[in-house]
């Protein structure tokens, strides 16, 4: 697609991606106007909206900028996000005085995990190594290193916590960055379109669940884990997201209609489970937010919750149904 702007012709390589990004920016503008108007109309009720919208601007510009700049920038940004998420997790989860070195090793896994995304020319196919590195070798190294350190009380619980944290915060989130290494020719809006669509649909699902829940929510779905979630909200949001996914899939993914329907049904569902899993963990640890890093939102993990589950599943389904590279 091309058009004239101030006498020079502008080429847009991926109209769907550009339109999607412009749409998100339009939503941000609307939200920011609401954040200015609503607190004035109903004082005290919307105090959180201003900082929340400002943080959204930062998130969207950072992620959008990284997707625009390419897979290297995206990998570096998500490596940083993984580090911050893992730090939040290991700060709140119980660890022992002897585990400081293990925690440092866990941070080192961020470098190796994301390094594998860069190391394609170093190994024959670093994707194969990526798949097994943290789930298998991270597991073996953590278990052996902690046995070597020698404190046995609380061993099993702590080794489980460290492995859980690295898989959820580093390995699962790393899939988002690895998806950017899809050859652009394999997707209608390039690799960036695939990533954009994942981020869009998981956030859309959160919003859709919230709206359906507010509108017709009655029956609590997980009263002890996440008391505000209802069956009506979860199912309404799930089906809405599935329909939106199915309708937009031809513009962003190489999926055939049947496969798009399957992915559209599965990904929002995994997002929901990622959300309640993080809620269960926060309840177990006795906190509401995982940190105060993002004003109006809480911590990095609070924002990532549904993505930690949705990202690997979306990646694997795309790889299975459509993408030759993986």
């Amino acid at each position: 697609m091309s058009f004239e702007l101030f006498g020079t012709s502008v080429y847009i390589v991926y109209p769907a991606l550009t339109l999607g990004f412009v749409g998100v920016l339009a939503l941000l503008v609307l939200g920011s106007i609401a954040a200015l108007v609503l607190p004035a109309m109903q004082p005290g009720k919307w105090s959180d909206l201003g900082p929340r919208m400002r943080s959204w601007w930062v998130i969207v510009l950072l992620v959008g900028g990284a997707l625009f700049a390419g897979w290297q920038a995206t990998a570096i940004l998500f490596a940083l996000i993984s580090f911050l998420a893992l730090k939040e997790f290991l700060t709140l989860a119980p660890t022992r005085k002897e585990d400081r070195l293990i925690v440092l090793l866990a941070y080192l896994s961020v470098f190796i995990n994301y390094g594998l995304i860069f190391a394609e020319s170093l190994f024959d196919d670093s994707y194969q190594i990526y798949l097994v590195f943290l789930p298998v070798y991270g597991f073996l190294i953590a278990a052996a290193a902690m046995a070597w350190i020698g404190r046995t009380d609380g061993y099993l619980a702590t080794v489980g916590i460290v492995h859980w944290g690295t898989v959820v915060c580093v390995y699962n989130i790393g899939y988002i960055a690895f998806l950017m290494r899809t050859p652009d020719a394999e997707a209608p809006a390039g690799a960036a379109g695939l990533v954009f669509f994942l981020l869009f649909i998981t956030q859309f699902n959160d919003v859709a669940q919230y709206c359906w829940g507010k509108a017709i929510g009655r029956t609590k779905i997980t009263p002890r884990v996440s008391p505000n979630k209802t069956w009506e909200g979860a199912i309404g949001g799930w089906l809405t997201s599935a329909v939106v996914f199915y309708l937009l899939a031809p513009y962003f993914t190489p999926l055939q209609p049947v496969h798009a329907a399957i992915v559209g049904l599965v990904v929002p569902l995994t997002g929901f489970f990622g959300d309640i899993t993080m809620s269960a963990i926060k309840r177990d640890l006795g906190v509401k937010d995982t940190s105060r890093l993002i004003p109006g939102h809480g911590g990095v993990l609070d924002r990532l919750d549904s993505l930690t589950f949705a990202a690997p599943v979306y990646f694997h389904l795309l790889a299975y149904f459509a993408i030759e590279r993986f």
């Binding site: 700060t91 709140l92 005085k97 006795g286 906190v287």
Partner: peptide, 13 residues
């Protein structure tokens, strides 16, 4: 000591 109540729980033994 009272301010400690506002900090997130610290589990480190």
């Amino acid at each position: 000591e009272a301010l400690k109540q506002q900090a997130p729980p610290l589990r480190w033994e």
